[in-house]
Nucleic acid binder design. Structure first.
Length: 823
RNA sequence: GCGGCUGUGGCGGAAUUGGUAGACGCGCACGCUUGAGGGGCGUGUGGGCAACCGUGCUGGUUCGAGUCCAGUCAGCCGCACCA
């Protein structure tokens, strides 16, 4: 009787073996080429989901493959373990966030090990561990000392459900990224990171990342949102104030017929004070302030606003134009005020129509369909300037730099660059995060905690009310401290850090995870960095991936790391769906990895998830598909065991004896070639696996032959087990051992292929007439164009095909095809 | 509205440089094996009786187009009053 494929026993056995032998330990070795493969670390929710299985299976194949190829591979894992769910669990069940989190971490470690993932667990980091967040606080202080962290009172995004502030990046469609509650505004004094200092570098370096998907680079580019234009000064009539505006269309300055300020613009109150306009203006400001983001942006087409009773003077022609306030102008971008040119900007056009403001065209598209003096909508395209004094007649695109030059000569404007990117708001009114290591002293202001006093530990005597104020305020002991500078009694910052900070440098800590003297040793970081292959979900395209790049740049400028970019190559894997829908508890279509592992084993789960679709694509989970993968592994198992049981003891050298031998040898070598290329260049694991399946199918046929070539079959089976190992490591280790090998497959080299074996003596030549397939012929390989054409023309079937035709041209492609062009 | 991606059998997906469309797998059908069931093994499987027709649709370039170009439709994703 054949041995049964008992995946439960096999998987347990080899997981134990790897753990006991510390098989995946990595150390710096300058004599070997390093390879750092990293998957985004998870939040420890307690249970793995299919997305995790996919993410970590992809990474594991890469890690094991590169290791077999001889690279010094680092493949670490850890937990992004600060965050809201722990705190919510505390509010709901009364469990301490720390306890809840550490239990989940233990649970998830167990599940990771059940998947047979080749992580170097000695490098594990948890961001909620004081050994980690101590250095997070240290980095914060370095940023503060460098002027990259500052505190400012500002209207901030406020999630009324999470009871905390949010960064701009965490507001999606006007709602909280986490809980989807509409976000409002609140004036709060908060800590910010000056990511805008790096806007240009974040943008420019994207060109140096050929290993990143264009989609992600484009998303970051749009988010940074660079635009080049000009600031122009408008005097406000009857005052000594100058209203500065930003425009990308300096060419349209003569067409400006009114001005708009953001309702929050600091001039507004002063300009209306004591005038008849004051009450109307204040009512409008009040109304805007009470709208949440969704309300404010949903009225996109319907423009609102109020005239504030003042006029601005157009610096080019001294014309007085009325000033309005309107919520379509944003305080956070440019100068918070615009010159409005209704003829050439659709938003200004809509506003002007509603308020009956004059529309002056200054660009003529000279198209018969467009009457510039009677516009139906704004004309935004290219054309020649009109009504613009010395600029009239010029092409408007060319007029932009001319106009800016003229303005700066007159000292009333200058070229200006603006970015949509805002500084990163990093304070959170939550408990379960890294305490911000800052102290407020009435005499010295904000002072960082002394480095020798780090970490500033999270207190445990806190209450979780879920009511807005930071829970740290409820601690009796936490706030009270002395000023590190003058020793006077002082107070600690009570907010914690956005958890996105923790994940912005963990890849550096992995390089030196147990260092108690430093965040990480520079030499070690320089050895391992940058990450050669980073793998994670596309949902992090902006948030995490941009923050991490910013950290790397800032740490570089602090002299702590050499590289300027953290991730050389990025793979964004698609989601795992079920029946075309996202797996979710509310729909009830969640497939749990545990269930699959129990039923089919980890190898089957890994194989299916890699086989079903290329990694960047969405993947639809299919239970019958999983069975197919299980069936395949059983097929391989039986093939190998039949071979073992027949007890073929042969150490003879391989001699190719027949055409079938030659064909099998070709398939073996072609399969190795294809997998090597698919895994290292394209990450197309699905096609790599399909070619292994083809090899297995061929072996099934081959072994039934009368004159089986034992040394060749042995070679095929040895190589089959080797190349399948990165995908399904447990079953392969077991078969490897049963084939009589003593060493673990981990230390077996990836097989080379023999180019000579890939050379075929005959080729299938396609015979076409006018490009349509008519016949396939077997013809000796390597013929020249003429010889190939002659060989094909000599074939009886071809003679029959073309004898009645008027062949006017023949196209021959050596080893491929002959196409007869007939009339 | 702006930017981007994707459209291939009943399904997931192959076709890497323009050169055999549908590899591999799922499903389905039939046969063999088995006391039955399950499992395994094998054969077939885009449409059409056929000539032929077939990669969202309409054109174009080419000896030859799933692949290149122009337009168009549909779906998905990102940004969205950014001056």
């Amino acid at each position: 009787m054949e041995k049964k494929y008992d995946f439960k026993r096999i998987e347990k056995k080899w997981q134990k073996y790897w753990e006991e032998n510390n098989s995946f330990k990595s150390t710096e070795d300058p004599s070997k080429e390093k390879y750092y493969v990293l998957e985004m670390f998870p939040y420890p929710s307690g249970k793995l989901h299919m997305g995790h299985v996919r993410n970590y299976s992809i990474g594991d194949v890469v890690a094991r493959f590169k290791h077999m190829q001889g690279f010094n591979v680092m493949h670490p894992m850890g937990f992004d373990s600060f965050g809201l769910p722990a705190e919510n669990a505390a509010i709901k069940h009364g469990a301490l966030p720390a306890e809840w989190t550490w239990n989940n971490i233990a649970e998830m470690e167990k599940q990771f090990k059940q998947l047979g993932l080749s992580f170097d667990w000695e490098r594990e980091v948890q961001t909620c561990n004081p050994d980690y967040y101590r250095w997070m606080q240290w980095i914060f202080i370095q940023f503060f000392n460098k002027g990259l962290a500052y505190k400012k009172e500002n209207p901030v995004n406020w999630c009324p459900s999470c009871q905390t502030v949010l960064a701009n990046e965490q507001v999606v469609d006007g709602a909280c990224e986490r809980c989807k509650t509409p976000v409002g505004k609140k004036n709060l004094s908060q800590w910010y990171f000056k990511i805008t200092d790096y806007a240009e570098q974040l943008l420019e370096n994207l060109d140096d990342l050929p290993g990143w998907p264009n989609k992600v680079k484009l998303m970051q580019k749009n988010w940074i949102g660079k635009s080049i234009g000009a600031n122009i000064d408008f005097k406000i009539d009857e005052t000594d104030k100058v209203l500065k505006v930003f425009t990308t269309r300096a060419d349209t300055l003569f067409g400006c017929t009114y001005m708009v300020m953001a309702p929050e613009h600091p001039f507004v109150k002063e300009l209306v004070e004591g005038t008849e306009f004051e009450s109307k203006v204040e009512a409008y400001i009040e109304k805007v302030q009470h709208m949440n983001e969704i309300e404010r942006t949903s009225t996109a087409n319907e423009k609102t606003g109020v005239f504030i009773g003042k006029y601005a003077v157009n610096p080019v022609n001294q014309k007085k134009v009325p000033i309005f306030i309107s919520d379509y102008v944003l305080m956070g971008y440019g100068t918070g005020a615009i010159m409005a040119v209704p003829a050439h900007d659709q938003r200004d056009f809509d506003f002007a129509k509603k308020f009956g403001i004059e529309i002056i065209p200054v660009v003529d598209g000279s198209s018969p369909e467009i009457d510039v003096n009677n516009l139906k909508e704004a004309f935004a395209a290219e054309g020649n300037m009109i009504n613009s004094e010395q600029f009239t007649g010029m092409n408007n695109r060319k007029a932009i730099p001319e106009m800016i030059k003229w303005l700066s000569e007159q000292n009333i404007g200058e070229e200006t660059v603006n970015y949509k990117l805002r500084d990163w708001l990093i304070s959170r009114q939550r408990y379960w995060g890294t305490p911000i290591p800052m102290i407020y002293c009435e005499d010295c202001g904000w002072v960082p905690e002394k480095e020798e006093n780090l970490p500033v530990l999270l207190p445990t005597d806190v209450e979780f009310t879920g009511k807005g104020e930071s829970p740290l305020a409820t601690s009796k002991t936490f706030a009270k401290c002395t000023c590190p500078k003058c020793g006077k009694e002082a107070k600690r910052e009570l907010d914690t850090m956005d958890t996105f900070l923790d994940s912005s440098w963990y890849f550096l800590r992995y390089c030196d995870p147990n260092n108690s003297e430093k965040a990480f040793d520079k030499e070690k970081a320089d050895y391992w960095m940058s990450v050669d292959q980073y793998i994670g979900g596309v949902e992090h395209a902006i948030l995490h991936l941009m923050y991490a790049r910013f950290f790397q740049m800032a740490l570089h400028d602090l002299g702590l790391v050499t590289g300027k970019e953290p991730f050389a190559n990025l793979l964004t894997q698609g989601m795992v769906n079920k029946d075309g829908k996202k797996m979710s508890k509310s729909i009830g279509n969640v497939v749990s990895p545990e269930e699959i592992i129990n039923k089919y084993g980890a190898d089957t789960a890994r194989l299916f998830i890699l086989f079903a679709a290329p990694p960047e694509k969405e993947l639809d989970w299919s239970d019958t598909g999983v069975e197919g993968s299980y069936r395949f592994l059983n097929r391989v198992w039986r093939l190998v065991h039949e071979f073992i049981e027949k007890d073929y003891h042969s150490d003879e050298a391989i001699k190719i004896k027949s055409e079938d031998d030659k064909k099998l040898n070709l398939t073996i070598n072609a399969t190795i070639k294809k997998i090597t290329e698919d895994v290292s260049n394209r990450f197309n694991f699905n096609t790599a696996i399909s070619s292994i399946m083809e090899l297995v199918n061929e072996l099934y046929k081959y072994k039934e032959k009368d004159d089986v070539n034992i040394p060749l079959l042995k070679d095929a089976i040895t190589k089959l087990v080797t190349i399948l190992a990165p995908f399904t490591p447990h079953i392969c280790e077991e078969m490897w051992q049963e084939l009589g090998h003593k060493e673990s497959l981990i230390d077996v080299s990836w097989p080379d292929y023999d180019e000579k074996a890939l050379v075929e003596d005959t080729k299938t030549i396609i015979v076409q007439i006018n490009g349509k397939l008519k016949e396939k012929l077997s013809i000796p390989a390597g013929l020249s164009r003429e010889d190939l054409e002659n060989a094909v023309r000599a074939d009886e079937k071809v003679i029959a095909l073309i004898s009645d035709l008027n062949v006017v041209k023949t196209v021959a492609v050596p080893d491929k095809l002959v196409n007869f062009v007939a009339k």
